[in-house]
Design a protein around this nucleic acid. Structure first.
Length: 185
DNA sequence: GGTATGATTGACT
DNA sequence: GTCAATCATACCA
């Protein structure tokens, strides 16, 4: 099964199954421990109002990166999936660092491994993800994305930092991981 | 042209 | 727990 086929499912399914996957940029990264689904037709999704210059990647091919700047200061990294409805993606919120820890420490100016990738903005800084990777395909360098068998103990809760759709439980995480951006309810 | 807002983080009480 | 920084983006005139 190709990566694109694996990603060609609805955002909630992909978000659940990405927990435990291996994700690297230029050999730096680790295991995904927290994601959020943003589905087409979801008021919280950037794709909800329709295509714009910023969210164009969400309306493009499956298996590409959607990278955007938030609060004028941080990057957020998403994986574009399910195109049947146009505009679905999964936000990668945190990683358990396993590869290239020295690069991450240099970029983040920190040493505590729990603080390197425990949030969408932190993870992008640690992995040097920015606008240049918007639209980039995930099945080739600099990316490595390897799905793994689904995590056994999945935590589920409402998504973080949004005002619309705030009750929809589309945040997924590896229960008990010390590398989450926040605890689950 | 102007203005409102945010899928966050880090510092502080 | 609370709060402000900070600017690209989106939208309106």
């Amino acid at each position: 099964m190709s990566l694109d086929d694996w990603l060609a499912r609805d955002a909630v399914t992909v978000a659940r199954e990405l927990i435990g996957a291996r994700f690297l940029v230029d050999g730096v990264g680790g295991t995904i421990v927290e994601t959020e689904a943003y589905d087409a037709g979801d008021p919280a999704s950037h794709s909800f109002p329709g295509p714009t210059a910023r969210n164009a990647a969400m309306f493009g091919p499956i298996g590409r990166a959607y990278v955007y700047r938030i609060y004028g200061a941080h990057w957020c990294f998403n994986i574009v999936c399910d195109r049947t409805k146009g505009g679905s993606a999964v936000l990668i919120r945190s990683l358990e660092p396993t590869d290239g820890l020295d690069h991450m420490r240099d970029r983040r100016g920190l040493t505590d491994p729990r603080a390197l990738c425990s949030g969408p903005g932190k993870l992008c800084q640690a992995l040097a993800i920015d606008k240049a990777l918007d639209h980039a395909p995930l099945d080739r360098p600099p990316f490595t994305l390897q799905p793994r068998p689904p995590a056994r103990d999945l935590a589920i809760g409402p998504r973080i930092g949004i005002t619309k759709g705030a009750d929809t439980p589309w945040r997924f995480g590896l229960r008990g991981s010390p590398f989450l951006s926040r605890r689950f309810p």
